[in-house]
Design a protein around this nucleic acid. Structure first.
Length: 594
RNA sequence: GGGGCUGUAGUAGAGUCGGUUACAACGCCGGCCUGUCACGCCGGAGGUCGCGGGUUCGAGUCCCGUCAGCCCCGCCA
């Protein structure tokens, strides 16, 4: 039988006791981190959310409390009363925040017992993630995850304060909403009242926040769950949180300026880092040219250099043919990389193949010049021209990819990121922001043989490119912007289309028939005809932002109850089956499984 | 849909060329210990080697399949 809490009231958190509390009588509650039984004296480390403090139980002083402490085990929930004392000379523990003091316990109540947990609740034990996820409520007791969630709270608080101070209103939008074409696969919720129909969970509150602008709310924000039924990654969960914002009567620069200040405030308040403003800008075209990707990690160089013109007429047929067929040849110069082993080079080759490259050509800069399987195909003139453009020096490693532009850029761009990690060119506490702007508006999709929106279908074209919508839509650029931090896209947004006729043209360009557009987006098209102001906004991925702020490698470490890669919850065992009765009410019959 | 890594007491690991009763650590249980703090010392319990099949006189070990977790490609406006 457990002891009752009675009328005891907590006076202090464990982690808050300091030398200033010496002499005072305190009441504390928490979990037993550890018990050290010295035969006579018993020490208990008592833990709560704020930290750990040592309890001392002396059999001579308080025999009753001491005998109760004898029964205590790890993770028992106890309440104590006692006096804060300085630790005897020589027993101060400088490793603990509360290490100068201890509590001489006069009374101890065991509020609840606990089974031996499957893993130790401390920063040392390394349980496998499936065990941690199954017992997530225990894993969440560990300090590293607690720190992450506390920081997440502080970031959310900073966001609310900042946006409130800047005139944004927090307004909720529906979670049960309507499936729309384009974008990710929807999570669907069957409607009982309207048999045979389905709600969709929002991939983002995009349409609703635009409607709020039409309604004149001027500045909106929400910290909101979004749902996308796609496969997971280390930085991707099926339900994730966005900091979602929208503003009326603004330009791209207005949005970027106010948002980079918000990010800077977050970094200052969460981790005390000063972010230099204004942040760097790159056009999409420049990012692709120099880094091969639209989310470049700006913490290191290793930029891509195009060599197509130099190798087009060279004796190396592989390169020349690629250029002749409209492809490109690019290279990166890995300073000091000539020491790479054959195995390492083979691994790099395997790496670029993941992204569709057929191979990776390499050159080691040695005393004798080019050491490379492809050296023999190039004339002295070719070699020196390439060397000069790549600024190749003794000891460097040159890596080449030749393919269609898309593949060359992605393969080398990803290789660049990979090498940055491998060579430790990027530090976790170095934060390099860059806005990527001037994205293409549309992209040709081979599969469906039509244009699809690069950002989303409501993104406005750049004013000077509007005429391109008729002549060469693939060339039109969008008033879109992404914020990239250390190679991770942490936010993206755009100025939206507020003109119904432009919106209709966009749908048409994307092969969405008028009838379909009316059915799917009719309410938006209608709203645009009732005095829609120019507006635009942005959404930040809070989870990804938290990963970077906390230095976590996995998105699961910044989410209290995350899902596995197969989108299941090992703790609740969701998703699960439901009763036949529930299915009947929803007019749903399951297809026979194979 | 595809590629890769991992799976052995509660936990995280070792386990050789296929060979006796599957090791030691942490944790757990018991005992001792009045200044420890990831306490210490002594003793003890604890195993469906993920699961199924196959090869073999014999499988944790080799082969096939399968399940789960993780990383990646595709996918993610």
């Amino acid at each position: 039988m457990n002891d009752i809490l009675g009328d005891w009231k907590r006076s202090h958190y464990c982690g808050h006791l300091t030398a200033a509390d010496i002499g005072s009588t305190v009441c504390m509650m928490g979990w037993v981190q550890r018990r050290r039984d010295h035969g006579g004296l018993i020490f208990i480390d008592l833990r709560d959310r704020e930290g750990i403090v040592q309890l001392a139980l002396d059999p001579d002083r308080d025999p009753d409390a001491h005998s109760r402490a004898d029964k205590v085990r790890n993770e028992f929930v106890v309440a104590i009363q006692g006096k804060v004392s300085p630790r005897p000379e020589g027993t101060v523990n400088p490793k603990m925040k509360t290490g100068e003091v201890e509590v001489e316990v006069s009374e101890l109540r065991i509020l609840n017992t606990a089974q031996t947990p499957p893993f130790m609740i401390d920063e040392y034990s390394e349980a496998a993630e499936n065990i941690r996820l199954k017992y997530r409520y225990l894993d969440l007791r560990r300090p590293t995850i607690q720190d992450n969630l506390v920081m997440r709270h502080k970031v959310a608080r900073t966001v609310r304060r900042y946006l409130d101070a800047n005139g944004f209103l927090e307004i909720e939008t529906p979670v049960l909403t309507k499936s729309t074409p384009e974008g990710a696969r929807d999570y669907l919720v069957p409607s009982r009242v309207n048999s045979g129909t389905f709600y969709a969970l929002p991939q983002s509150p995009q349409l609703f926040k635009q409607l709020l602008m039409v309604s004149g709310y001027d500045r909106y924000f929400q910290i909101v769950k979004c749902f996308r039924d796609e496969d997971l990654r280390a930085d991707r969960q099926p339900e994730f949180t966005q900091i979602d914002c929208e503003m009326s009567f603004v330009s791209r620069d207005d949005v970027m300026t106010i948002m980079e200040e918000m990010i800077s405030t977050i970094f200052k308040e969460a981790i005390d880092v000063d972010v230099q403003l204004p942040m760097a800008h790159l056009t999409y075209a420049e990012a692709m040219d120099r880094f091969g990707v639209d989310n470049p990690d700006m913490r290191f160089g290793l930029e891509l250099t195009e060599l197509s013109d130099l190798v087009a007429a060279s004796g190396f047929k592989v390169f020349a043919d690629v250029v002749a067929k409209g492809g490109i040849v690019k290279a990166i110069n890995v300073k000091g990389g000539a020491s790479f082993s054959r195995k390492e080079l083979d691994d790099l080759t395997e790496f670029v193949k993941i992204y569709g490259a057929k191979g990776l050509a390499w050159v080691k800069m040695t005393e004798e010049g080019w050491q490379s399987p492809i050296a023999k195909f190039f004339s002295e003139n070719d070699l020196s021209a390439i060397n000069e453009r790549l600024a190749a020096e003794l000891g460097d490693l040159l890596l080449f990819v030749a393919d269609k532009p898309k593949i060359t850029n992605e393969a080398l761009g990803r290789l660049r990121g990979h090498l940055g990690q491998k060579l430790e060119l990027a530090q976790k506490d170095d934060f390099r922001f860059v806005w990527i702007t001037d994205f293409p508006l549309l992209e040709w999709d081979e599969e469906s043989k039509r244009h699809v929106a690069v950002h989303h279908p409501f993104t406005a074209p750049m004013d000077e490119d509007i005429s391109l919508l008729d002549s060469d839509p693939g060339k039109a650029r969008a008033k879109a912007y992404d914020l990239v931090l250390n190679g991770s896209e942490i936010g993206g947004g755009s100025i939206r289309i507020h003109d119904q006729s432009v919106q209709s043209r966009m749908f048409k360009l994307m092969g969405i028939e008028q009838e379909e557009a009316r059915e799917k987006f009719g309410f938006l098209l209608d709203a645009l005809e009732y005095g829609a102001p120019p507006h635009g906004g942005i959404a930040f991925g809070l989870d990804r932002l938290m990963m970077i702020l906390s230095g976590s490698d996995s998105i699961r470490d910044v989410i209290a109850f995350p899902k596995t890669q197969k989108a299941t919850c090992l703790m609740s065992e969701a998703p699960g089956t439901v009763d036949e009765k529930q299915l009947r009410e929803l007019s749903i019959r399951l297809a026979k499984s194979k």
